[in-house]
Structures are given as structure tokens and as C-alpha cells.
């Protein structure tokens, strides 16, 4: 299969194996899906979640929204983010100041030697 193989100079990679494994995974998924309960009916009591007899909370209440994800990650990198986020001030002259400063640094780096 020469067309599929990607040569990277120090190795190679062939997507065909991934393709085969994806197909196998899909077949497995179908087998599990097909062996499910046949007596399931939409729109009846069966669809309702069973929470030990407690009333079902509102859908909005059980949805985990984006702000709640990666709390631990954000918390452990607190110091980094505390310094990084305020740099994005949203003031146009600050944007330009960054641009001029980097230009000056590069000029010093390249012109001086």
C-alpha cells in the first residue's frame, strides 16, 4: 500500500490500520447496541431516569456547563493565568506597544552582531 504510507524521514505511518481499527470499533458498537433491551418504548415511563424515587431535577440543573470544566487545571496553574490573562488588556495602544517592543528587540538581536 505505497499510497497510504507517509514517510517522515525517520519513520513512517499508515492510516490504513487506523481505518481497520475504526471499522472494528464501529462493528463492536453496533453489536452492543443491537443486543440492548428490545422492549424499550419512547415517550413512556421507561425514558424517565430513576433517582431512588426522588423528583427529577431540571435539565438545566444537571447540565455541566463550560465554566465548570477544568476547574482543577485552572486552579493548579493559578499563578500562570493570573499573570497571563491581564496582559490581554484590550487596549489598542497596548497591542501596538507590544508590536513596537518586539520590533525593537529583534532589531537589536539582528543588527548588533
Amino acid at each position: 500500500m505505497p499510497d497510504f504510507t507517509l514517510f517522515t524521514g525517520s519513520g513512517f505511518w499508515n492510516p490504513i490500520f487506523w481505518f481497520v481499527s475504526i471499522i472494528v470499533a464501529l462493528i463492536l458498537i453496533y453489536i452492543i447496541y443491537a443486543s440492548g433491551e428490545k422492549g424499550y418504548k419512547r415517550g413512556t415511563e421507561q425514558v424517565k431516569p430513576f433517582i431512588s424515587g426522588n423528583p427529577e431535577p431540571a435539565k438545566r440543573g444537571v447540565q455541566i456547563s463550560a465554566g465548570n470544566l477544568y476547574w482543577g487545571y485552572m486552579d493548579s496553574l493559578r499563578v500562570y493565568y493570573r499573570n497571563l490573562i491581564p496582559l490581554h488588556t484590550g487596549i489598542i495602544t497596548d497591542y501596538l506597544l507590544w508590536m513596537f517592543c518586539v520590533t525593537a528587540i529583534l532589531l537589536i538581536l539582528v543588527v548588533i552582531p
Binding site: 490573562i85 490581554h88 488588556t89 484590550g90 487596549i91 489598542i92
Partner: peptide, 10 residues
């Protein structure tokens, strides 16, 4: 004022 024009930031 450029400093008031910062609805978009972060």
C-alpha cells in the same frame, strides 16, 4: 478614549 474601548479583552 482608547481605554474605554475595551469591551473585548482576555
Amino acid at each position: 478614549d482608547v481605554e474605554k474601548m475595551r469591551e473585548l479583552r482576555e
